[in-house]
Simulated scan of single mutants.
Amino acid sequence: MATIKDIAKKAGVSSATVSRVLNYDRTLSVSETTRKRIFEAAETLNYSKYRKKIQKKKSLGKIAIVLWYTEQEELNDLYYLSIRLGVENKLQSMGYEFVHILPNERLHIDVNANIDGMIAIGKFSNDQIKNLSAACEQIVFVDFDTLSLGYDCVVTDFEHSIKQVIDHFLARKVQTIGLLAGIEYTNDHVLLKDPRLKIFKDYIKERLNQSPECIYTGDFSPESGYELMKKAVQELGDRLPEAFFVANDAMAIGSIRALHEENIDVPGRVSIISFNDISIAKYSFPPLSTVKVYTESMGEEGVDLLIKNMKKKSRSTQKGDPWDKACNTRKQLLIFSLNYPLLHCFGTQQVNLFPRERHRKYSP
Score class of each variant (00 low, 15 high):
199 I>K: 13
204 I>V: 13
230 K>P: 03
237 G>S: 14
207 R>Q: 14
198 K>L: 14
191 L>R: 13
213 E>C: 10
191 L>A: 14
227 E>I: 08
202 D>L: 02
188 D>S: 03
234 Q>Y: 12
195 P>H: 07
233 V>G: 01
238 D>N: 15
229 M>R: 09
202 D>N: 09
236 L>R: 06
216 Y>E: 10
225 G>E: 01
204 I>F: 05
192 L>N: 02
227 E>Q: 15
229 M>E: 11
225 G>H: 01
196 R>M: 03
224 S>M: 08
222 P>E: 04
228 L>N: 00
189 H>P: 12
238 D>R: 13
220 F>H: 08
219 D>G: 05
212 P>L: 12
234 Q>H: 13
182 G>H: 06
198 K>F: 13
192 L>Y: 05
220 F>M: 12
195 P>A: 02
232 A>L: 06
181 A>R: 00
201 K>M: 04
197 L>G: 03
201 K>I: 01
186 T>P: 09
184 E>F: 03
187 N>C: 09
187 N>M: 07
205 K>T: 14
215 I>V: 11
199 I>T: 13
227 E>K: 09
220 F>V: 10
208 L>C: 07
239 R>Q: 15
220 F>L: 10
230 K>E: 10
198 K>E: 12
204 I>A: 04
235 E>L: 00
194 D>A: 04
231 K>T: 08
240 L>Y: 00
228 L>A: 03
238 D>G: 14
192 L>S: 02
237 G>V: 12
226 Y>N: 03
233 V>C: 05
238 D>Q: 15
235 E>D: 11
215 I>L: 11
204 I>D: 00
205 K>F: 13
188 D>H: 05
198 K>I: 11
187 N>E: 10
215 I>S: 05
224 S>A: 13
218 G>C: 07
207 R>E: 14
184 E>H: 04
224 S>H: 07
209 N>M: 15
213 E>V: 13
189 H>C: 15
181 A>E: 05
203 Y>N: 02
186 T>M: 07
202 D>E: 14
203 Y>M: 07
204 I>K: 01
189 H>F: 15
230 K>I: 07
209 N>L: 09
220 F>R: 05
215 I>E: 11
191 L>K: 15
212 P>W: 12
239 R>A: 10
222 P>H: 04
208 L>M: 12
194 D>Q: 06
205 K>A: 13
231 K>W: 09
214 C>A: 15
239 R>S: 13
183 I>W: 01
190 V>M: 08
197 L>C: 10
216 Y>N: 06
213 E>I: 08
236 L>Y: 07
232 A>E: 04
189 H>Y: 12
189 H>I: 12
240 L>G: 00
230 K>H: 11
239 R>W: 14
219 D>E: 11
210 Q>K: 15
201 K>P: 00
237 G>P: 11
214 C>W: 10
188 D>V: 02
201 K>S: 02
212 P>C: 08
